[in-house]
């Protein structure tokens, strides 16, 4: 069975928000129609987005890490948001594991959003239906797009390639490999939701310096010394042995 997902590499995400607005622009004119914004030019502008990038500080100065943390629907394998939906508008696709909302069925009761521990659903305040990341289902299967572009909008946009897209059930896929080899982890594993999206942790590269590397024979300072020609007066082994 296929389970499509994003794997997000916190090791390289610089928090640029490209994934946020590329998602917005792709989806606002997409099959589901607009993603509304309130007070767009007034106090407290607020709108519907499928993807947000947050920032956390970890540790105390000067040992501080700044972590940028992109967050969209995790397409849980056991999504608590789905069974609670009274209308069946929320559903998980058998074929590829994408969790979607059928906007024609949704009554806007918001119950599914309560049932998502991750805060990944947003109601559209004007269409009054629940919305969330669709994993760009309208791109990834669109055969009218060039093959290389059949990827989520945010994945294509991301300047650092921090967003990997693929089938986490296929052990050979890039995403599975990344999860395996780079310690990919799910969010809030305690709830047994089995998020399909995974996150890759920070990794550190360090340089080790050995003492002798600082005192090597080819040190150019040696060339600056004015050297006297060197000869030895007394006897040496050269005078008494032969091999």
């Amino acid at each position: 069975m296929t389970q499509l997902a994003l794997v997000i590499d916190l090791n390289v995400c610089v928090g640029c928000h490209a994934c946020v607005t590329s998602c917005k622009q792709w989806n606002t004119s997409g099959p589901a129609g607009y993603m509304s914004d309130d007070n767009p030019y007034d106090k407290d502008p607020t709108g519907t987005f499928f993807n947000r990038v947050q920032t956390f500080e970890v540790g105390n100065y000067p040992n501080t890490e700044t972590v940028h943390f992109p967050k969209s629907c995790l397409h849980c394998e056991d999504p608590p948001c789905v069974p609670v939906c009274p209308t069946g508008a929320s559903y998980k696709r058998e074929s590829d594991g994408i969790v979607l909302v059928d906007y024609d069925k949704c009554i806007g009761c918001k119950y599914c959003s309560w049932a998502c521990p991750y805060g990944m659903r947003e109601i559209d305040e004007h269409q009054k239906v629940m919305k969330k990341c669709t994993l760009c289902v309208d791109r990834i299967y669109d055969t009218s797009l060039p093959e290389a572009e059949r990827k989520p909008a945010c994945v294509m946009a991301c300047p650092t390639n921090a967003r990997l897209f693929g089938d986490v059930h296929d052990p050979e896929s890039e995403v599975s490999l990344a999860i395996r080899e780079r310690g990919g982890y799910p969010l809030m594993p305690e709830w047994g939701t089995k998020p399909a999206n995974h996150y890759l942790p920070r990794r550190k590269t360090r340089i080790t310096i050995h003492e002798d590397e600082l005192t090597r024979a080819d040190n150019p300072l040696k060339k600056e010394r004015k050297q006297a020609p060197h000869t030895i007066e007394g006897p040496t082994l050269d005078d008494s042995t032969m091999w």
Partner: peptide
């Protein structure tokens, strides 16, 4: 929630400023 084990994690930005759903 973010998958980082450290005793001091503080959010500095939720990603938008004037509220959301």
């Amino acid at each position: 929630a973010v998958g980082i084990s450290h005793s001091n994690i503080v959010q500095k930005s939720q990603g938008f400023m004037a509220g959301s759903f």
